[in-house]
C-alpha cells in the first residue's frame, strides 16, 4: 500500500555521534521523536537513512501555517456517486505502518497538531472525527517531527502538551572534519576543496553575531561543491551558492566575499 514510500537505495549519511543507535532504540520503543537543529544540517537526510535502514516507508508532510487537521487526517470528497472518504497522509501512515515525518512542525498551527495527541501516548490510535472511525496504529507506525529552534520559531513553539510526548535528538552542524567529509562525498570534490568550503561555512556562521539570520548550512556548502565539481571556480561557486543567497545586507555580503577570497588558492 505504501510501497511507493519505501526508500530503496541507501541514502548517504555520516553519523556524527550515536544518533543511529539511539534512534533505532526509540523506534523499537515506539517513542515519537523530535529532530531539532538548524536548517540544512542533515535532519531529513538522517531520517531518510533511518527509514532505509529500518525498511519502513517514509511519509513526509511539510507543515505550513494554513495546514488544517483534515490535511493531515483526511476528508470527504465528492465523486460521481456521492461522497467518499479520502485518507490524509497521516492516516495512511498510521493504517499501514510507516514513519510519518512532519517537517518544520512548528509552522503548523497548534490546534492542528492536537490531532496527533492520541497517537503519541499509550493509546496509539487515530480517531477520525469526520468519518467516525478509529484507526489503531500499525505496530510499525512511528511519528517523527522536526523543527529549527532558531529565530523563526520565535512565537512558535510546540505546545507543552505536545512537546512532552516526544523524545528528541538535537542536530547541529557537524564538526569541521566530518563536515568536510560529507561535503567531499556529496559534492564530489577533493578533501582539500571540501575543507576550504567548510571554512567558508564557519565564517558565515560566525557572522550570525553580526546580524546574519543563519549561517551557511551543510547543504549550501554541498551546492557550492557541486558547482566546483562541474568546473566553476571556487569564488564564483561560493558566491552563487552561499554568499548571495544568505544575505541582502551589503556589509555582511562584503564580509562573506572576503572570507571566500581568503579560501581561494
Amino acid at each position: 500500500m505504501l510501497s511507493d514510500y519505501l526508500i530503496r537505495t541507501e541514502p548517504y549519511y555520516r553519523p556524527v555521534g550515536d544518533e543511529v543507535s539511539l534512534f533505532t532504540a526509540a523506534c523499537a520503543a515506539r517513542l515519537p521523536m523530535i529532530l531539532k537543529g538548524p536548517t540544512g544540517c542533515g535532519k531529513t537526510r538522517f531520517l531518510e537513512h533511518m527509514a532505509w535502514r529500518l525498511r519502513r516507508p517514509l511519509v513526509t508532510i511539510a507543515c505550513h501555517e494554513d495546514m488544517s487537521a483534515p490535511d493531515l487526517v483526511g476528508r470527504w470528497l465528492l465523486d460521481a456517486g456521492g461522497t467518499v472518504w479520502h485518507d490524509g497522509p497521516l492516516t495512511r501512515a498510521v493504517r499501514f505502518g510507516a514513519i510519518c515525518y512532519l517537517d518544520e512542525v512548528v509552522e503548523a498551527r497548534p490546534d492542528t497538531l492536537v490531532a496527533i495527541h492520541p497517537l503519541t501516548d499509550a493509546r496509539r490510535m487515530l480517531p477520525l472525527e469526520r468519518s467516525g472511525e478509529v484507526v489503531p496504529a500499525h505496530p510499525d507506525f512511528l511519528l517523527v517531527v522536526s523543527y529549527n529552534p532558531g529565530y523563526q520559531a520565535l512565537q512558535k513553539d510546540l505546545k507543552e502538551s505536545t512537546k512532552q510526548r516526544f523524545g528528541a535528538l538535537a542536530f547541529t552542524y557537524p564538526e569541521p572534519g566530518a563536515e568536510a567529509e560529507i561535503v567531499a562525498h556529496e559534492a564530489g570534490v577533493d578533501e582539500g576543496c571540501a575543507t576550504r568550503l567548510v571554512r567558508v561555512g564557519a565564517a558565515s556562521r560566525a557572522l550570525v553575531a553580526e546580524g546574519l539570520a543563519e549561517g551557511a548550512s551543510t547543504r549550501m556548502l554541498i551546492h557550492a561543491g557541486r558547482l566546483i565539481a562541474g568546473g566553476i571556480g571556487f569564488a564564483p561557486a561560493c558566491t552563487l551558492a552561499v554568499a548571495t543567497p544568505l544575505s541582502d545586507d551589503p556589509a555582511l555580503r562584503d564580509a562573506l566575499a572576503a572570507a571566500i577570497a581568503a579560501q581561494v588558492l
Partner: peptide, 9 residues
C-alpha cells in the same frame, strides 16, 4: 562592514 569582516575572517 569592517566589524563583519573581522568576524568572518
Amino acid at each position: 562592514r569592517r566589524a563583519a569582516l573581522l568576524r568572518a575572517l
